[in-house]
Design a protein around this nucleic acid. Structure first.
Length: 569
RNA sequence: CGGGAUGUAGCUCAGCUUGGUAGAGCACAGGCAUGGGGUGCCUGGGGUCGCAGGUUCAACUCCUGUCAUCCCGACCA
């Protein structure tokens, strides 16, 4: 491709709207432009990278017997009513009407459509297992799109769905996808971790997220410093390693604590450490009040509360609700003497506390000398807090550390939720109808592209791994007015192309400096410059990633490149 | 959805306080010089100042509304 004709305008200034490296570079290097908030157009360079990633995905999916199909972005709302998600999904679901007033949605995912297809097309165990996938544009009306293509309203996804007759079959499909995903992200040159995640409303059992390690990631990964344990912070478990606290001592006693609403105020005012204070938070779980307790230096994890009650409807109570149920403001609530309609759940660590302080459900008042192991007989003790760095790893090996990650893939075992809701059944060996057991597996293609840039760039621009680079080689004629340089450039362009390289040829009438700057921004793995020594048949080869430069005689160029290209990642 | 900010040329921004009909740098077109890290000089094209009302002889500037975009938070298969 001659750069003369390439539509990939570079920007010298950093666009004011972009804050993170990948977003800035995608705009500056001419990979894409914003069309609306959270909606982008991919220009030729960006489209090429997407295609490279998609090719890798297809190869790895096909290698696991995945069959590609293509479903519509526009889906009838009735399908979503059938599965019950029309309401569940909420305002993130883009809804629209056709000219007859019929209701449609723009698909954020395709469980409904695929399940209805399989329902009508598969009726025997002999057809199973099956794995179907597509690469498609998805829509989610994010409340707040941000970070460029990392959190956008329109995005490209690969989504796959597996169909099995047995649980074992599902396990097998799941493992295959897990393996395929590992291959895919490795081939894209990403440093990633597969972490145990929350299955949330989907209601599956096993689920892993594939996280690209990056400081700008929106998810926190909790991992062990000395084992392979890694989980999303939301669900990272804590073992109950605490010794039960004392049951002795004088009874709990009320004390006046004016203006001590927060843990730090109580800590200061009563000269106790935060780990001697019981933090009490009122939640409304499926409409019922639940008082959750943890140590003052810990934080309650509402996902764990939800899992405990097997629901996703968990909300912190409003100030009015707190007042209604506990007759005090949020800073002074506590577990002692609460009415029976309020369920009390406490973190394991609370049971280990001795001489603790907690709110007395009376404004400006706390209890002291609380012995949770004695004074909370009706409380349920469970793991309900967030892990912190330094906590023991749940597998007993090492301690927990945190890292930030970008979620690029997600695999989970759906089970029969959709097959039951939509009536997708098969007949087993005995002629008995059974719901098909499903799994679903997603990869954010456009997000993966951004993640690659996050991990592969420097202050000058992008540094593409060769597996996803928009072109293999960048050939520059530094001064096209110089006849020898011009001739050599044209000659090399033909030769390198015929040798099978995808070459971007900078034949523009620009100064050398401009070409170098643009080349660094574009970030192709190898740069070949025809410059001053063209008359001696010598070109300069530079490795973008390392900056290494070598002058090479044209006669030796093919062998030299072949070798060097192999060493590029 | 709550809080904050910004909308002036393709990009980055000035002008607005104190109203008088729009500017700079980069980019773009032409020219001369230059020719290995965004070169220099000259000339030129490009903007209903987000939109709609209002105040005024006169609005980029003041007032009201509205839309858009970004940031923080909440939320997120």
């Amino acid at each position: 491709m001659r750069q003369q004709w390439l539509f990939a305008p570079t920007l010298r200034d950093v666009p004011a709207d972009a804050d993170i490296a990948s977003h800035q570079l995608m705009l500056r290097a001419g990979l894409m432009r914003q069309t609306a908030a959270g909606i982008y157009s991919y220009l030729p360079l960006g489209a090429r990278v997407l295609e490279k990633i998609e090719t890798i995905v297809r190869e790895e999916m096909n290698a696991k017997e995945g069959q590609e199909l293509l479903m519509p972005a526009i889906q009838p709302a009735e399908l979503w009513e059938e599965s019950g998600r029309l309401e569940d999904y909420g305002p993130e679901l883009v809804r629209l009407n056709d000219r007859h007033g019929r209701d449609f949605v723009l698909g954020p995912t395709h469980e409904e459509v695929i399940t209805s297809l399989v329902r009508d097309g598969v009726s025997s165990y002999k057809k199973l297992p099956m794995n179907l996938y597509q690469i498609q544009t998805k829509y989610r009306d994010e409340r707040r799109p941000r970070f460029g293509v990392l959190r956008s309203r329109e995005f490209i996804m690969k989504d796959a769905y597996s169909f099995d007759a047995t649980k074992d079959g599902l396990d097998e499909n799941y493992n295959k996808m897990y393996e395929a995903y590992s291959h895919i992200f490795s081939r894209c040159g990403l440093d990633f971790r597969a972490v145990v995640a929350d299955s949330g409303a989907i209601g599956g059992t096993d689920t892993h997220e594939f996280m690209v390690l990056s400081d700008i990631g929106e998810d926190t990964i909790a991992y062990s410093d000395s084992s392979s344990y890694a989980a999303n912070l939301e669900i990272a478990e804590l073992p109950d390693l605490y010794e039960a606290g004392s049951t002795e001592g004088p009874a709990a006693e009320k004390i006046q604590t004016p203006n001590m609403k927060t843990i730090s105020e109580v800590s200061e005012g009563l000269s106790v450490t935060p780990d001697q204070i019981i933090k009490s938070v009122l939640f409304i779980v499926e409409g019922k009040p639940v008082l959750a307790l943890c140590r003052g230096d810990h934080d309650i994890n509402d996902v764990k509360i939800g899992n405990l009650f097997k629901t996703v409807q968990v909300e912190t109570a409003t100030e009015e609700e707190v007042r209604t149920y506990l007759a005090a403001s949020a800073g002074y609530i506590g577990p002692l003497g609460v009415s029976e309609e309020i369920e009390v759940v406490a973190d394991y660590a609370v049971r280990a506390m001795t001489d603790a302080v907690c709110g007395a459900n009376e404004d400006e008042t706390h209890y002291k000398q609380v012995q949770p192991n004695r004074d909370l007989p009706s409380a349920t003790f469970a793991d309900i807090r967030f892990v912190q760095e330094g906590d023991p790893s749940p597998d007993g090996k090492g301690v927990i550390q945190f890292a930030k990650g970008i979620e690029v893939g997600h695999v989970f075992k759906l089970g029969t939720k959709y097959s039951e809701a939509l009536g997708a059944q098969f007949l087993d060996e005995n002629g008995k109808a059974q719901p098909i057991i499903m799994g679903c597996y997603g990869i954010g293609i456009s997000r993966t592209l951004a993640a690659v840039i996050e991990q592969h760039h420097d202050e000058d621009g992008i540094i593409w791994p060769k597996s996803v680079a928009p072109f293999d080689l960048h050939l520059l004629t530094l001064n096209p007015k110089n006849e020898e340089q011009f001739e050599l450039g044209e000659q090399l362009y033909k030769e390198l192309t015929s040798q099978g390289y995808d070459v971007l040829f900078d034949d523009r009438k620009e100064r050398a400096g401009v070409k170098f700057k643009d080349a660094d921004l574009y970030g192709l793995p190898l740069r070949i410059a025809c410059g001053k020594r063209a008359n001696e048949n010598i070109v300069e080869v530079k490795v973008r990633r390392t900056g290494e430069v070598e002058e090479v005689d044209v006669s030796e160029l093919p062998q030299y490149l072949e070798k060097l290209y192999q060493t590029c990642m």
